[in-house]
Computed example of a mutant assay.
Amino acid sequence: MRSPRLTLLLLLLFVALASFAQESSDQKALWYEYTLHAPLSKNWFNETELMERHLVDPFLQSQFFIRTRFHKKVTPFFNYGLGGSMFLFHIPTGSDLSNFNLPELRPQGELNLRAKVAGISVNNRLRGELRFFQNTNLEYTASESGFNFTAARIRYRLQAILPLANLKDEKSLKLKIANEIMAMGGGDLEQLAFDQNRISADLSFSFSAALSLDLGYVNWHQARIHGGYLDQHILRTVVKHQLKSAKK
Rank of each mutant, 00 (worst) to 15 (best):
Q222S: 01
S24N: 10
V239A: 05
Q134I: 03
P92L: 02
L50A: 12
P4D: 03
Y156A: 00
D195G: 05
G94T: 08
V239G: 01
K176N: 07
I154S: 08
Y32H: 04
H90T: 08
G119N: 03
L17N: 14
D195A: 11
L189R: 15
F133M: 10
P107T: 14
T136N: 01
A142L: 03
N99S: 14
L113G: 03
L50M: 11
G128V: 11
H54T: 05
L60Q: 10
S121L: 11
D96N: 09
I91H: 15
L9W: 10
R106Y: 08
G128T: 10
L12A: 07
M51C: 08
M182E: 06
L13C: 08
T75Q: 06
D188I: 13
D195K: 00
K176P: 02
L60M: 04
D195F: 07
F64W: 09
E110Q: 13
I181L: 14
A115Y: 09
P39V: 02
K116T: 13
L211I: 11
R153N: 08
S25P: 04
Q134F: 03
M51H: 11
L97Y: 11
K168R: 07
N101E: 09
L173H: 05
P39E: 00
D26S: 14
Q27K: 13
A246I: 08
K174W: 13
V117N: 00
F64S: 12
V15P: 06
P163K: 01
D188A: 14
A183P: 02
P163E: 06
G119R: 04
N101P: 06
N219I: 03
L158E: 02
G84R: 10
L55K: 13
V238R: 15
A223N: 04
W220D: 06
N101K: 10
R5A: 08
Y32S: 06
A209M: 05
N99H: 12
V122T: 04
P107G: 10
A223L: 15
S95R: 14
F194I: 07
L243P: 11
F133E: 08
L167E: 00
L17R: 13
A209Q: 13
R157V: 04
S41A: 04
R114L: 04
S206A: 07
A246Y: 05
V239Y: 06
T136F: 01
L138K: 12
S206D: 08
N219T: 10
V218P: 01
A151F: 11
R198T: 11
G94E: 05
Q108F: 05
P103F: 07
N101A: 12
L189Q: 15
S25C: 05
A210R: 09
H233V: 07
H71V: 01
D57P: 04
L215Q: 04
L6I: 14
Y217K: 07
M184L: 09
G146F: 01
L158S: 01
F14C: 09
L8P: 00
T68K: 12
F205L: 05
K247W: 13
L230D: 03
V122K: 00
N123G: 08
A246E: 06
R114G: 09
E33F: 07
D26R: 13
R157T: 08
E139W: 15
N43T: 05
L12I: 15
S25K: 12
P58E: 00
W31Y: 00
A29H: 01
K247T: 13
F100S: 09
Q22K: 07
I234R: 06
N166A: 03
S200K: 06
K73I: 03
P4Q: 00
S121V: 12
L60F: 04
H241Y: 15
N46A: 14
